[in-house]
Amino acid sequence: MKFASVKRLLLVAAIVAVVAGAAGAVYFAAQPMSFAWVAYAPLSGEVFNPNSTHLVSAPTMYALAVVALGLVVAAFWAGLTVGERRSRALIE
Rank of each mutant, 00 (worst) to 15 (best):
G21T: 07
Y40V: 14
Y40W: 13
M1Q: 12
G83H: 11
A25Y: 00
V82C: 02
K7I: 06
W37Y: 12
L11C: 10
Y27H: 11
G70V: 05
V72W: 08
T53F: 15
L55K: 14
P32W: 10
W77R: 07
A14K: 03
L10D: 01
A17F: 06
S87Y: 15
M61A: 09
W77Y: 11
A29C: 06
I15S: 02
A23W: 15
P59S: 00
A75W: 05
V26F: 15
A25P: 00
R88G: 00
A74D: 01
V73S: 00
A39K: 13
K7S: 04
V19F: 15
V47W: 12
A78V: 06
A14C: 12
L71G: 01
A58V: 09
P50R: 06
V26D: 09
Y27G: 12
E92I: 00
M61D: 07
V26N: 03
Y62K: 02
L71S: 04
G70T: 03
A78T: 11
V38Y: 02
G70C: 00
V26T: 08
A75M: 09
L69H: 07
A74M: 14
E92M: 08
R88A: 05
K2V: 12
P59G: 01
A14F: 15
H54P: 14
A20H: 11
E92Y: 15
I15A: 04
K2H: 06
R86G: 03
K7R: 14
G21L: 05
Q31T: 01
P42L: 02
T81K: 05
S34P: 00
R85I: 01
T81L: 08
A74T: 01
V66E: 14
E84A: 02
V47P: 13
V47T: 02
V72K: 08
V56R: 09
Y40I: 05
N51E: 15
N51D: 15
S34C: 07
L55V: 07
Q31M: 04
R88M: 01
L9E: 06
A4D: 09
L64I: 07
S57Q: 13
A25F: 01
G24I: 13
L64K: 06
A89V: 09
T60M: 03
Y62D: 04
V47L: 04
V26H: 14
A4S: 15
V6W: 08
R85Q: 04
A41F: 11
L43H: 12
V12T: 10
M1G: 12
A29K: 10
A13Q: 11
Q31W: 01
L11S: 08
P42I: 00
V38K: 01
Y27A: 10
G45C: 05
V38C: 07
Y27R: 03
R86L: 11
S87E: 09
W77F: 15
M1S: 13
L90N: 09
A41W: 03
S44Q: 11
V56H: 07
A58C: 04
A23V: 07
E46Y: 11
A29D: 10
S87K: 05
A78Q: 09
R8T: 03
W77D: 02
A65P: 08
N49T: 08
V82S: 00
T81D: 02
A23F: 13
R88T: 02
V73P: 00
A13R: 14
A58W: 07
A29M: 03
I15V: 15
G24H: 10
A36L: 08
P32M: 01
R8G: 06
